[in-house]
Amino acid sequence: MADQHPSLSTPHDGTRPPWYARAATSAGRPAVLAATLIMSMPGEYHVARFAGWSDPWAYGMPFSLSAYAGIAAVVAATRPKGARGRASATIGAVFAIVLALAAQVVAHLVNTGHMDHNQAWLIAVTSMVPPAVLAHLLHLAATPTPAVAPSTSVDTGPDAPVVERVTPVVDPAPVIPPRPETAPQLPAAAPAPVYRDPRCAAIRPLYNGGTRPGTEAMRAALVDAGYGLVSGSTVRGTLRPEIEEHEPHLALLPPAIGRTA
């Protein structure tokens, strides 16, 4: 529970303290607070009377000192380290506690006859308490309180395990270029010519060198293709004209060097 004392939180062995211990802790703190306030009020009231305040104004001194000490202590405890106003609240809490203690000591010394209350320094110090308390409380109220992100931890005890949240690294999705609406059309390859004389197919590769082959080169190609010796007149007058009939640009190629026409 949020109002339980840290020393009575659930132990590490999983057992809980008995109910009467939890009840004493929950109910005991406000009871002790009320008792200490009631016991402190007479001394602080008498110190105010020693300084010259009359009733009912003297009753304001206990509330000034006690409330001031509580407010300054809470501000000092709740503001994070290094935040604005934390150091001032800590100093104010210590100052308020010192004043409250001094008021009790002075009141009891005076009431028991160990001290004379009619002293200038005592009256001066006591008279400065209310305006000093008011000024410091206004200063704390004007100092902004830093925003603190809510904790998502389940166990916030001093021995609670620290769990680090690791953000997974996600590889970016690969960028896929958009598909074209229509695939690019490649130029169609020219169909291979169909020769009337099949021996033309053995001669046609000789043109790939960028020159017009001669008679001997064409006859040698026919021999290599298994057609045997073919007369030069047949090569020049029949086969080569048929090839260049299908592809007229071949007839414009320069003649091969050292060829026989």
Rank of each mutant, 00 (worst) to 15 (best):
M1I: 08
Q4H: 02
S7Q: 09
S9V: 11
A21K: 05
R22P: 00
R22E: 09
A35W: 08
A35G: 14
A35P: 02
T36Q: 12
L37G: 06
Y45E: 03
R49I: 05
F50W: 14
F50P: 00
A51K: 01
A51Q: 01
W53C: 03
S54D: 13
P56G: 03
W57V: 01
A58D: 11
A58M: 00
Y59W: 14
M61G: 03
F63R: 09
S64F: 03
A69M: 12
A69I: 07
G70C: 06
A72D: 01
V74F: 08
V75Q: 01
V75T: 03
A77C: 12
T78A: 11
R79E: 00
K81S: 07
G82I: 07
A83I: 02
R84P: 00
G85N: 02
I91M: 02
F95I: 06
A96L: 02
A96Q: 08
I97R: 01
L101I: 13
A102C: 15
Q104S: 15
H108E: 14
L109A: 15
L109V: 05
V110P: 00
N111T: 01
N111E: 12
M115Q: 07
A120E: 14
A124Q: 13
V125G: 11
P131Y: 12
L134A: 15
L137T: 08
L138M: 15
H139G: 14
A141S: 12
P146N: 04
S151V: 10
T156D: 15
D159H: 15
D159N: 14
A160R: 09
V162A: 13
V162W: 13
V163Q: 13
E164H: 11
E164K: 09
R165N: 10
V166R: 05
V166C: 01
V166Q: 11
P168E: 05
V169G: 08
V170E: 04
V170C: 06
D171S: 13
P174V: 02
P174S: 04
V175Q: 09
P178Y: 01
A183T: 03
A183D: 12
P187R: 09
P191A: 09
A192G: 01
P193W: 07
Y195N: 05
C200L: 06
A201P: 02
A202L: 05
N208G: 04
G209W: 12
G209Y: 11
G209Q: 11
R212K: 04
P213L: 04
P213M: 12
M218L: 11
M218T: 06
A220T: 14
A221W: 00
L222Y: 05
G226Y: 03
Y227V: 02
G228Y: 05
S233L: 12
S233I: 07
V235P: 07
R236S: 15
L239W: 07
E247A: 14
P248A: 05
H249C: 03
P254H: 07
A256M: 14
A256C: 03
I257L: 07
